[in-house]
Design a protein around this nucleic acid. Structure first.
Lengths: 340, 340
DNA sequence: CTGAAAGCGCTAACAG
DNA sequence: CTGTTAGCGCTTTCAG
């Protein structure tokens, strides 16, 4: 017997079909409380037979519990955030929490909008990229009364908890390695992104160490949009034409670094003797390149995992007092493009 | 005056703070119905002052309307689905609908689970990759009583509507071009993915045309996991060692194709005279390569856009009768790796 | 233009 | 182990 109206099924339908009270049906479907094996089977059979899918909207309203974790990140198109997501998903797999993603495109206003939208679903927690947010966003986050983990960056004050690396230190370390390798004429290539605070912090740490070593940036070049690999080529070519005595190129991400590397190899430049190169992120893609680009791992999946674990712990055990700051340590991999 | 309990704010709080009935507050916050400019201002001020964020759970339950579109895709880590997502987001921007993503990892059981999970939130529509689903999944989709758009593939029967390209035809077209270019000893390299039906359909179309031309596949090689670019190198090397007289390599995706291309160029192979190459997808990344890989655009963002438009149209106008099948036509770009 | 009453479909909290 | 009774916070509907 099939239903002929298309009204979605409710618990009541299952209750009637199985001859068991709504309450007990609910218990069976959620594996809560003791139910006799007999009625359990009856209910499950009826539910399956009808094709019943519970209504979480109603359940969430009644129980005041929503097993969703809002994850708010700037972008999905570079390699970095997908990997963070992987870490989050994996960490949440054992729990009954589910990640829901919102994208901000590095725009504070959009972040605010997305945040508002997500918070209106009353999630169990928020994982959000970065430490820089509009006042309104901070207020919402604080008022939400749920665990908030800010990720990727630890150079600043968290609203609640932060998990990440110090991009300032990352920039410093790379600068250190480059100085020690003896490079002198250094060019910087990166995205034209006033709102990418982490790239900015790396750049600041980098130039500061350089300055201490008495080295001033020889040249810089910025881009926006387009295929990063192609842009890497273009930027590199442009810079070498303008400043031919460059002996090191520091890229703000691995993708443009890879483009630069391919370009230089084609030109027959001796890497790293004539020109050294380094990127940032440690993306998997690099492994297919003819030469390994020097880079620095940003601990992406590690950060995702840890952030999710914190939300999970706080959700099950709100009293547990966890550290407000968890800092990972990025490590340089020298590859074949940075002398040691 | 600040509240000292951390109970989330409700409409009632705004109502009391503004001295306006809950109902009217609700009207103001949703821009529904006529409200005098005066009370509107009072309400808005109170809401903002308190930092009220509406509870969509309650709203959705009361109105029986959820402005969410479930998007179910196999993966986010290759370049293809992020671009579909971009198309969807853009198309939904004008509407009040919001995409929510679920990932299946190409696993039918996981697809079933994710689908169940999403449907329990009673979304306004579903966009799901592929035409192959478990019986249970099909049943759920049919029973949901909401618009369902299956995307990426049109070789099969849709549950409701399908938007995509024919992967069979895509394989055929590429085979045609390769045959016409005069290549004879052809190798296939792809993912070891019995569950990637679209790759399988391309392969079938490809071999069929080859067979008609009296050409049998000279060799094949499959991989799984790892960096696709690196895998492309390895597979290519392995195949050339085993079958040195190969004169064309057909890759099931651009990423491994790019790896193969880089490998061959390093080896000094004359591409495309000595060995021709082709991939599939038309990913942006290719533009940064030293040579343009022949490929075929899969119309990814176009498909996402169209699918979202259909959901939007059906949501606002349930009566509108739209075609059940929308087929896009993929076009070969010959690049520099396929003779013409 | 504004308000009061009655649920939406489920679950918490009690009773048995 | 099972059922009953009240809501969860909003919106629909119907009166003013």
């Amino acid at each position: 017997m099939t239903r002929h109206d298309s009204r979605p099924l409710t618990l009541r339908d299952v209750s009637e079909a199985s001859g068991v009270s709504e309450m007990t049906v609910s218990r069976v479907l959620r594996n809560r409380g003791d139910v006799s094996e007999n009625t359990r089977k009856k209910v499950l059979a009826a539910a399956k037979q009808l094709g019943y899918v519970p209504n979480k909207i109603a359940g969430a309203l009644a129980s005041q519990r929503v097993n969703l974790v809002a994850v708010i990140i700037p972008s999905m198109s570079n390699m970095v955030f997908p990997e963070v997501m992987t870490g989050i998903s994996r960490a949440l797999e054992g729990t009954d929490l589910q990640p829901v993603v919102g994208i901000t495109d590095y725009l504070p206003e959009k972040e605010e909008k997305v945040l508002y939208e997500m918070l209106s679903w009353r999630p169990s927690g928020v994982i959000i990229a970065g430490l820089e947010h509009s006042d309104a966003s901070r207020a919402m986050l604080r008022a939400a009364g749920i665990p908030v983990v800010e990720i990727m960056d630890v150079d600043g004050m968290p609203i609640d908890t932060m998990v990440g690396i110090s991009h300032r230190v990352a920039g410093e370390k790379m600068a250190q390695a480059i100085v020690e390798a003896g490079y002198k004429r250094i060019g910087f290539l990166g995205t034209k992104m006033p709102l990418d605070h982490r790239a900015r912090k790396r750049f600041e740490g980098f130039t500061q160490v350089m300055a201490k070593a008495g080295i001033e940036m020889a040249d810089q070049e910025f881009y926006s949009g387009g295929s990063a690999l192609a842009k890497g080529r273009e930027l590199t070519e442009a810079m070498l034409n303008r400043t031919p005595d460059i002996d090191f190129l520091y890229y703000s991400n691995d993708m443009i670094g890879a483009g630069g590397l391919l370009y230089l190899l084609e030109k027959g430049v001796d890497v790293p003797a004539q020109i050294g190169l380094a990127g940032f992120n440690g993306v998997e893609l690099l492994q297919g390149l003819p030469r390994q680009l020097a880079t620095m791992d940003a601990c992406r999946s590690e950060i995702g995992r840890k952030a999710a674990e914190i939300i999970a712990e706080r959700t099950t055990n709100p009293e547990s007092d966890l550290p407000k700051k968890i800092e990972m340590t990025p490590v340089i991999s020298f590859g074949d493009t940075l002398k040691r």
